[in-house]
């Protein structure tokens, strides 16, 4: 690898790929601005988390093998998601703990894998991203990003460079929003109550924008906020950092 210009393989994640490609392009821009060469291996689909969390270890392993292979050639693997990066980094080793012959390949991948904002601040040493966003923002830490990868200060540090933006934190910011992948459709009533509580928290801050680093949580909270008729704008943090706010309407908002 070139120390100056590492090659980053973007792990798009299935939710970004299908629901909100704009997040992927925002991530590409941030990585390029930070001095990375960005490639997007075609042979990627999903990290396998839905299978893993459903007890389907065999399919989870097949998908994990697919990821290992697709990203074998890049210096780093970066995902605009704490959840998918966390699956690769913390759960692939567990998934293959009965296949010692896979240990080296798995370790090699996990060492190179990062969540977007922590990659920018930690590896690329990005201290500041210039931009403008007029609004009061509250930030939702996804549970996997927070607890599996320690993502909390990184996105906030990057947001400090954005003019016109101020952050107002939620009181119970450690609490899950109730998404939980398949959980939200398997136990919709419990999930609904949890996301309602999270919506209360968001509204209590008085912020006009909710940002976060994981699309699953954001779709969930945005969906609940809009069901309640709230006008809070919801975006992935990469969109604000990359300045993609004119082109793409907030999550769940109509194209104006």
């Amino acid at each position: 690898m070139s120390a100056m210009r590492p090659t980053v393989g973007l792990f798009v994640t299935c939710l970004v790929d299908t629901m909100r490609p704009a997040v992927g392009f925002a991530a590409v821009k941030l990585l390029q601005d930070a001095g990375c060469e960005v490639v997007v291996p075609a042979a990627q689909t999903c990290c396998g988390q839905p299978a893993m969390n459903s007890g389907d270890r065999s399919d989870a392993k097949s998908l994990a093998r697919q990821v290992i292979k697709a990203f074998a050639q890049v210096d780093y693997v970066v995902a605009p998601s704490g959840s998918c990066a966390g699956t690769i980094k913390t759960h692939y080793p567990e998934l293959f703990d009965d296949e010692p012959e896979m240990a080296a390949a798995v370790a090699d991948l996990t060492e190179r894998t990062w969540e977007l904002t922590s990659f920018l601040t930690t590896v690329m040493k990005v201290a500041r991203v210039d931009g403008r966003y007029d609004g009061v923002v509250t930030y939702h830490d996804s549970c996997s990003g927070l607890r599996e990868l320690g993502v909390r200060p990184q996105p906030r540090a990057l947001l400090e460079g954005i003019d016109g933006l101020s952050v107002k934190e939620m009181e119970m910011r450690d609490t899950c929003c109730g998404f939980g992948g398949m959980f939200c459709v398997k136990y919709p009533e419990i999930s609904g109550k949890m996301v309602d509580a999270k919506a209360d928290e968001v509204l209590a801050t008085g912020a006009d924008t909710l940002l976060g680093g994981d699309l699953g949580c954001l779709l969930n909270i945005a969906g609940r906020l809009s069901r309640r008729g709230s006008r809070v704008r919801v975006r992935h943090v990469a969109e604000v950092l990359a300045g993609d706010i004119e082109e793409t309407p907030p999550i769940g908002a109509p194209r104006s």
Partner: peptide, 29 residues
Amino acid sequence: SGWTGARDLPAPQGFTFQEMWSARGGRRQ
């Protein structure tokens, strides 16, 4: 209904990242 019972489902943008990346001639490897 599991999803939409308690919340709206934000609509997707209408294209996948992968197809747009190809359309823009983005690097694959």
